[in-house]
Design a protein around this nucleic acid. Structure first.
Length: 115
DNA sequence: TTGCTGACCGACG
DNA sequence: CCGTCGGCCAGCA
């Protein structure tokens, strides 16, 4: 049985599913998604899933996912420009020096919003 | 096939 | 306060 490649139950698929649930103008962290999935220690995998998010047919708002400090750690992977910052600012999120301002207000906790 | 790396996080000294 | 290390899983050479 090795057909378990990227089924809907796959860890990656879950990450994409949660990421797509992020509302407009909100952001979340890798650890929050990982914790929601029950694999808190696998926060790295969430980021890695975002790296492979482009392989998914459905678009994943990876720009709404940042690290715990609210820093745009993955901005370098968005076309090699500050596209990530522009996208977030386009949603009304204030960013300064790659750091989301008032991060606490725009933070979207999946475990709190979802059951 | 084996081994390393990766957009992180939390703990420890 | 800041540097370092381990852990989690999947993709790639």
């Amino acid at each position: 049985m090795k057909e378990n490649h990227q089924n809907e139950d796959s860890f990656f698929a879950k990450v994409y599913a949660v990421a797509r649930l992020i509302p407009y103008g909100r952001v979340t962290s890798y650890g929050a998604i990982a914790e929601y999935l029950g694999t808190k220690g696998s926060a790295r995998m969430v980021g890695w899933a975002m790296n492979s998010s482009h392989t998914q047919k459905l678009q994943v708002p990876a720009h709404r996912v940042v690290n715990r400090t609210g820093m745009l750690s993955g901005k370098h992977h968005f076309g090699g420009s500050n596209l990530m910052q522009e996208l977030l600012e386009s949603e009304g999120i204030k960013i300064e020096d790659d750091q989301i301002q008032n991060f606490d207000a725009v933070f979207w906790n999946p475990m709190k919003e979802l059951y």
